[in-house]
Amino acid sequence: MNDDDEQLLRGRVYGRDRDHPHPGPLPHQRYAVLVGGPLDGLLLDITGWRPEEIDDGAALMTELGRWPGGWALYDPLPDAPRPAAGPGVVCRFHYVGDTP
């Protein structure tokens, strides 16, 4: 990944194409910011996720990881604050590795 790729990812919601009319966050949605790894800087929409789903983290398909078409694994830190009610970024998921 080069600097141009990194700039395209920043502030964009995972799963939305960069050409999407609204690639950034939407009001009244809840997001986890992805920290580190191939998806660093992207937002993951966690609106409607239960606390136990958030505790489990996420495996996110990406072409940018060690295995193109594989999965980047992100987890919340064990003692990090959990989402509270309200819109916007409410937690962080940290990169823990890749899997094919």
Rank of each mutant, 00 (worst) to 15 (best):
D3I: 11
D3W: 08
D4A: 14
D4H: 10
D4T: 13
E6D: 05
E6K: 15
L8Y: 08
R10F: 08
G11I: 07
G11R: 09
R12G: 05
V13P: 05
Y14H: 05
G15L: 10
G15Y: 06
R16Q: 05
R16L: 13
D17I: 01
D19E: 13
H20T: 01
P21G: 10
G24S: 13
P25E: 06
L26N: 10
L26T: 12
P27G: 06
P27A: 13
R30V: 05
R30H: 05
A32S: 06
V33T: 10
L34G: 03
L34K: 03
L34Y: 04
G36D: 08
G37A: 10
G37E: 05
G41Y: 03
G41K: 08
G41W: 04
L43A: 08
L43Q: 10
L44T: 02
D45W: 01
I46K: 02
T47K: 05
G48M: 13
G48W: 11
W49I: 02
P51K: 11
P51G: 11
E52I: 11
E53Y: 09
E53P: 05
I54Y: 10
G57L: 09
A58Y: 04
A58N: 06
M61T: 14
M61K: 10
M61I: 09
M61E: 14
M61H: 12
T62M: 13
T62K: 12
E63T: 10
L64I: 03
R66L: 14
W67H: 15
W67N: 11
W67Q: 09
G70N: 05
G70A: 08
W71T: 04
A72I: 07
A72Q: 07
Y74K: 04
D75A: 13
P76H: 06
P76D: 07
P78A: 15
P78V: 14
D79M: 09
R82P: 01
R82M: 12
R82H: 08
P83M: 04
A85K: 14
A85W: 08
V89C: 03
V90K: 01
R92K: 12
F93Q: 00
F93R: 00
H94N: 06
H94K: 01
Y95D: 01
V96S: 09
G97L: 03
G97M: 04
G97A: 08
D98G: 05
D98H: 06
T99A: 13
T99R: 15
